[in-house]
Design a protein around this nucleic acid. Structure first.
Lengths: 155, 155
DNA sequence: AGAAAATCGGTACCAAAGTATGAAGTTATT
DNA sequence: AATAACTTCATACTTTGGTACCGATTTTCT
């Protein structure tokens, strides 16, 4: 494509040149150019070839490419990957055990299961859970679960 | 800026022209151009002004801008819009009341709240809830909530 | 070393959740 | 009209969850 265009231009230029030379020859022999009229003749040639040069340049100048970046939104129905909200977790001032138990509560374990899981007595779990609720300012596991998820402190 | 540049070019062009004319005059009077050498002379002028034309054009012609649009993909995480899984819901064979109560349970209501909400007695709610759990094959509300959400039968 | 916090455990008590069973009225469906 | 399913309510009971105390270690921090 580019090469074809270049070739076409070169051929066109050659033909225009040939035509002009012939035209000039004709002018030269038929109009008995006087010595004093040589300036006018040269001026004509200068003007014609200037215009030719302008035309050539206009053909050869490459267009500037202007890149426009358009943002295309891709909506993905994908669960947000869990990122622990460290600040929120610290704001609750939970102990390690309390946080550990909270995570088990979120997973749906009951107190007895948690006790067995951690090799602790049921009373201990109850104590921890109760303290946990106090710190979270909730009154039952369901509220604790919702809050913990909303605060992004559990997966 | 644009105007200044245009003016500069016009002045430059004038000066170049003046210089060329002087040069040509000098060539004309000092080299005793023979009649037969007129073709060479004209050729020179043609070439010089062609180049001049190209130069002028290259300076003045604004390159055409070719706009290229590039799409940049941006992933947007959007919470899944709830779509009821009708088939899953029907597979449980819940009654209207049971499903209604399930929805309230998912929203975190306790049995007493549900009773007040539906203007029913606590015993009635307990009965419905118990039957509901039997059909869902779970033993408490937390499991019922997780299952209902997993089955996509509640928002 | 001493104080404070965290951990573990217990008892007692109450509230809520859940099960089992029965009964009576209503609504569909054949 | 008869049957089945649904709805409502009640009683009695068991389990689980939650609170309020308490005491005894262990760990952490100053």
């Amino acid at each position: 494509m580019e090469v074809d265009k270049g070739l076409r231009h070169i051929l066109l230029y050659g033909l225009v040149m040939a035509g002009l030379i012939l035209g000039l020859k004709w002018l030269q022999w038929n109009f008995l150019i006087v010595e004093n009229a040589i300036d006018l003749y040269i001026g004509m040639i200068a003007a014609i070839f200037t215009v030719l040069g302008v035309w050539i340049a206009s053909q050869l100048i490459q267009p500037k490419t202007h890149t426009v970046v358009v943002e295309k939104e891709i909506i993905v129905h994908q669960p947000k990957t869990f990122v622990l909200n460290q600040a929120a977790l610290e704001s609750l001032q939970l102990t390690k055990r309390e946080y550990e138990i909270l995570q088990l509560i979120v997973q749906g374990y009951n107190n007895a299961d948690i006790a067995n899981n951690l090799f602790l007595s049921l009373s201990t779990i109850k104590t921890h859970v109760s303290n946990l609720y106090s710190k979270m300012n909730v009154k039952n596991r369901y509220k604790a679960i919702s809050l913990a998820k909303k605060m992004e402190i559990v997966a």
